[in-house]
Computed example of a mutant assay.
Amino acid sequence: MTSPRSSASESSGLPAYSDFVSNREAPPPPPATRWPFVVLIVVGTLLVLAPIVTGMFPRAVKGEAMIDSFAPHVTQSRIEDYRTDLRVLDDARTNVIALRAAGQEQGRSGRVDQFVNDYPGIRSDMSEMVDAIDANRGNYEKLAGIPPFGDLPWLLALPGLVLIVAGAFGLRRAQAGNRALAWRSTAAVAALALIAVPLVGGLFPAAPAAQPLIDGFRPILTHDEVRKVQGYFVTLVAADGELNSTYTGAVRTAHPDADLTGITALESRWQPMTSRFAGLIGVMNDNIVNFDAVVALNDSTKPLGFTAFRGLGWFFLLPGVLALVAAASAIRSPSRPKPGGGSL
């Protein structure tokens, strides 16, 4: 049965109401904001490229190895041991000179003579070495307290990869008019992780300690300096061998009342002393390449007007804040209307 409204439409030549409702197309959805996802991709790409361009991956591992290997030699007790060892060597040399002055020395020994003649220079250089370590003990402790150096490039690159993926997939969803809530949330988590690294890891107070540490260790961590100290060690070993084998025996035989306090103190301390100095020299020798890698990493950002360690905390914080702002901006972007309301 034909309704009156249909009959009237047919008679008037106008489209029926039902035809108008069924044939009308819905208006296109408002475009979703895309620039935040582009920002996420750019920031993520920079975070991945930065440790690659600066050589941070291998250099940071070498820096971590250097920090770990110096740990036993940068304690207050070990520094005090080094200073006491040098005082014992001072007293042994003074003892030899006193025996000569008293005419109690029985013949001259070339090795003991070399020790007496060379020790002032040896004492000066080794004191400067110990002083450099002692002066930077606080800087070393600050750097040792931050996240391991070898992890730092990964803490940049991995969030960077997450931002790239979130930005790329989020951009595709935005082009379809969707809000891409899951990808925006993923980007926000990566951004918060970047922000947390310098704040929780203490990079801002600790990283500036790297420059004075580098400056303090630069004179002593060279091949020439290590070879020179190794030569000193040879001189000391030869002199001790002579003192212990024939020198003191000859003096005691000729002068039973001779004062040999300084020389005997050296003999009683010799084994732990040589172990400590040999360990220190070995660590210095093993870490020359590692130290050079740390210096190269620190200098890698000089073309930008600052050294890498001075800006280390900002390398995490600024990209993290920028990525978080971009993710939050995308959250506020318009969404594509869906039947029955809601969006993805």
Rank of each mutant, 00 (worst) to 15 (best):
T2Y: 06
R5A: 15
S12M: 14
G13K: 12
P15E: 15
P15Y: 12
D19L: 08
D19G: 10
V21H: 11
N23M: 11
F37E: 02
G44I: 01
T54N: 06
T54I: 07
V61Q: 15
K62T: 09
G63L: 08
S69C: 03
F70P: 01
T75E: 10
R83L: 10
R83E: 14
D85W: 06
A98N: 10
Q104R: 12
N117W: 00
P120A: 06
G138N: 08
Y140W: 11
E141V: 09
K142S: 08
I146R: 06
P148K: 13
W154C: 00
V165S: 04
Q175H: 12
N178L: 14
A180N: 08
A180L: 09
T186I: 08
P205N: 12
A207C: 10
D215G: 02
D215L: 09
G216M: 07
R218A: 15
P219G: 07
T222P: 06
T222H: 02
V237M: 01
S245V: 05
T246D: 13
R252D: 11
D257F: 11
T274F: 03
R276I: 02
F277V: 13
I281L: 14
D286S: 12
V294N: 03
V294D: 01
D299Y: 04
F309Q: 02
F315T: 09
L317Q: 05
A327R: 04
I331S: 13
P334N: 08
R336W: 03
